[in-house]
Design a protein around this nucleic acid. Structure first.
Lengths: 399, 399
DNA sequence: CATATATATTTTGGACTATAAACTAATGTC
DNA sequence: GACATTAGTTTATAGTCCAAAATATATATG
């Protein structure tokens, strides 16, 4: 149901509209803001004055005029607030410190020795990294907006600090990070890593400006994020968009999620390698295996050609299901394995998507390569607290 | 992107909130409205006064009190406006006249002799039915909000009068109904039949009150509608939610859409009958065939048991994909064949959905039978103009 | 039956909003 | 230097919700 609205909501919404544009555009002027948002010049003046008073925005010079008063340059003060973004993967935890404009200021990575790391240990590592980065950058903790955490697995209610994380794949059942928030003294927002990457692509990557887009990430596994009406789609309790474990085969191979026929178990790198060699020859060193596969493919090895052709067709089919269900303007293909397919066989992939989707949505969907690299997870995670700041306007110290 | 907001939007949004509740609740009071929406008593008084002035709402008596001033009964005047809803199927066109409260006042149905009816002919039939119903009910055409049209196939931009309809299945390529709007002199809103049914289930059926729900309709074919944040999900250009033609098999049987492995071609009634008998024995009279199948099943016929078991599993898998992607609170299963499965084998279906979906979203999704019958298409179609009236507040004569 | 109590609704006054229109500021052109 | 042009600010106004006070109308109770 829609919620009741009041005049205050109007201001919050328009302030968010302007601040979002200020953050994303980097540098603008009041008249640009008015033209871009449709708000009257008076309102722009009013809201911008508020943002300048707060210290969020600065006037930093003038734009040359071609007849008429010069426009005053506005930009978000990168030191007005700071934010952390963490990428928790199966073998490594990376945390970066960003300014309010989401420029990366510093970074820390910690690799694991064994597998099956538990949530508490991850929390400790992140807390340590945050402390180190704070010291290194000499940042006032009171100016930190929060920490965004991109994790593998399904995350319920990422807006709440004590989000419940289900990640059977790496052995977490239901882990919460509320204690981490208490320990760090800053807000912690948790979300699925594919979703944070999607957020990054939506703010700064190939999905920029798209109202309806899909970001499909294929590595060893497969995940996706869905942008709907310009925003990340999360469903009833945020566990939406779990494309990697939708089924595209009634009989297919077993998946590590316990089921079978999942997209991940058919188009993921290890699955494709297995179908090429018929055995788990490259277990644990899939990137090497994929290099070998691509070499063989380029040399015309018939098994390699068949394996890659099939992988492309199956990926196209799995993406076509998303096209039929979400009718996106754009599909961004990424992840280390997905990126290779999108780079080396873009036309085959496009054709496969069109082939398996309905005519109308299929023709409307543009398939593109991801623009952001592996850093997208931390960047996207960092957008979570920034997004909340933009929407609610909570000043760090009062958050 | 979010749009700019102004104080007027606040009123429009709150007015819509109250009017929607008035339409759906049937009968309420000002204090109920305040409690339900969170709006202050003053605002409720204010907005309700406006609605009464307009003639949309009436005061119709009092509610007995148990100490304190009596509540004044409010309800939407069913004769304040009228609306038509049409169901265009492959063999029949049905149009009903409704009051503003969506009570069915009169109805007309026209069957086709041959197959492949063209859009122009459908428009003519609908126009004739509308004229007859107007005369029969002696309704002032100026008080008609519009006509909602539920059609098979993909509909682009159903909000615009000249929506483009793609319905390969019944031989329409791109048909528009803008001319019908001109001919009738009332707004025409077109949408896919599964989507209008979903809207009906959301307003008056099993999905009532659910913020995130899926309505899956399985007859001879299969279609679905998706409710997200309390509203029907339509994607970039409305062609979203085409579940019936998502693929769940890499090799599966050919589908009438030209592809293969589609949900529709695996769990649709004719597909199941074919898998039971191994041939198209019941083509054109599938309902009879399904009766025979159910009889055989109850008598323990092993082929029938296997066919129905498989159909239930496959339907569960196809629904599980939606569960993973949309994380709904509820799944409503309907359509004449889907309803039989949901009626006769509810537990098997629930188990199959859980089995093929991820743990967290799978446990949250409740599987239920549809409550509305075949009339849901016309009812849902009629909600389209009513919904627009609620949101925009356009009076019929000025629309 | 007078009074107290309870609930529903309306009236009043205040706090906020956006915006149109008038106004000020600063630049380039002729 | 007069004028046109563009940017931004100030002012006046209309519209919004809401808290609080006022009013209306019930039941309960001695």
């Amino acid at each position: 149901m829609a919620k009741k609205a009041s005049v205050r909501d109007v201001r919050r919404s328009n302030r968010a509209l302007l601040l979002r544009r200020l953050v994303l555009a980097g540098e603008t002027s009041r008249s640009d803001l008015g033209a871009a948002t449709g708000l009257s010049a008076a309102t722009v003046t009013n809201v911008v004055a508020e943002l300048i008073d707060e210290g969020t925005v600065n006037e930093t010079g003038f734009l040359n005029s071609a007849g008429g008063r010069r426009r005053v340059l506005l930009h978000v003060d990168p030191d007005a607030a700071y934010v952390f973004g963490s990428d928790v993967s199966e073998s490594q935890v990376t945390t970066c410190l960003f300014g309010l404009t989401l420029t990366r200021l510093a970074s820390r990575a910690t690799r694991f020795t064994g597998r099956r790391i538990d949530p508490a240990r991850v929390g400790e590592i992140v807390a340590g990294q945050v402390a180190e980065l704070l010291a290194e950058a000499a940042v006032d903790p009171a100016r930190v907006l929060g920490l965004g955490l991109g994790v593998p697995g399904v995350v319920e209610h990422p807006a709440t600090p004590d989000a419940v994380v289900h990640a059977d794949v790496i052995g977490w059942d239901t882990a919460g990070f509320g204690w981490l928030e208490a320990a760090l003294g800053i807000p912690v927002l948790v979300d699925n890593g594919a979703k944070t990457t999607t957020q990054a692509e939506s703010w700064y990557g190939s999905a920029r400006g798209a109202e309806h887009a899909i970001v499909a990430l294929i590595g060893d596994g497969a995940g996706a994020g869905i942008i709907t009406n310009g925003r990340l789609y999360r469903g009833a309790s945020s566990g939406a968009g779990e494309w990697g474990h939708t089924k595209i085969s009634l009989t297919g191979p077993a998946c590590r999620c316990g089921s079978f026929g999942c997209v991940e178990s058919i188009v993921g790198a290890s699955a494709v390698l297995r179908s090429w060699r018929g055995a788990d020859e490259f277990a644990g060193r899939e990137p090497l295996g994929v290099e070998a596969l691509l070499d063989a493919y380029r040399n015309g090895d018939s098994a390699a050609v068949r394996a890659l052709d099939e992988a492309t067709q199956h990926l196209g089919l799995a993406l076509a299901n998303l096209v039929n269900l979400y009718n996106p303007e754009k599909i961004i293909v990424g992840g280390w394995f997905g990126d290779l397919i999108a780079r080396d066989r873009p036309e085959e992939l496009r054709a496969a998507v069109r082939r398996f989707s309905l005519k109308q949505p299929g023709e409307q969907a543009v398939v593109e390569r991801s623009q952001l690299g592996m850093d997208a997870v931390t960047l996207g995670a960092a957008t979570l607290p920034v997004d909340r700041f933009i929407e609610t306007g909570l000043i760090p110290s009062t958050a």
